[in-house]
């Protein structure tokens, strides 16, 4: 099962809607609320990054029996220094964006903290692709 979302650039009235929709969907599937919250946080951070830094893009949520995979792709300038971007508190957000409540420099660290694995592929000028994996608890063999 795959859900696809389009994330517009710098549209703060729309930003966060994809994550809210995904969270409702996952809750209805009956997944563990703690896991749903982790996915919702990671997705919201990814969504805001794409809206603020990525020039818009998309997200895909793929649900299988073993795991939930969340893929983000944007059309942005790419991440020049990934290590710096993963540092808590580091942000390149503008004053305008900060006044909206973003730019705490916790976005990518929050994504990593909430996922079981995170893979970032980014080059300056070539956009950014992030894959997050959330493992589903295995059922005990009967």
């Amino acid at each position: 099962m795959k859900l696809k979302f389009t994330i517009p650039s710098m549209d703060f009235s729309a930003a966060g809607k994809a994550s809210t929709e995904a969270k409702r969907f996952l809750s209805r599937l009956g997944l563990d609320p703690g896991l749903v919250k982790r996915i919702a946080i990671a997705m919201y951070e990814g969504e805001m990054n794409i809206a603020i830094h990525g020039g818009g893009g998309g997200a895909e949520l793929e649900i299988s029996p073993e795991k939930i995979e969340l893929l983000f792709k944007d059309n942005g300038p790419g991440i020049a220094d990934l290590e710096l971007a993963m540092t808590e508190g580091y942000s390149t957000a503008s004053e305008e964006v900060r006044s909206m409540g973003f730019g705490a420099g916790m976005g990518m660290p929050n994504m990593k903290r909430n996922a079981d694995s995170m893979d970032v592929d980014s080059k300056p000028g070539a956009g950014t692709r992030v894959v997050l994996v959330f493992n589903l608890a295995k059922a005990e063999p009967s």
Partner: peptide
Amino acid sequence: ADLMSDVMAFVKDRVVLLTGLMNPQALRT
């Protein structure tokens, strides 16, 4: 907090959020 990613990094259960940020993002967070 006024920065929403900080809320996301620290939040616990059964929480009241105090904020000076008054926009849809505060509610969505």
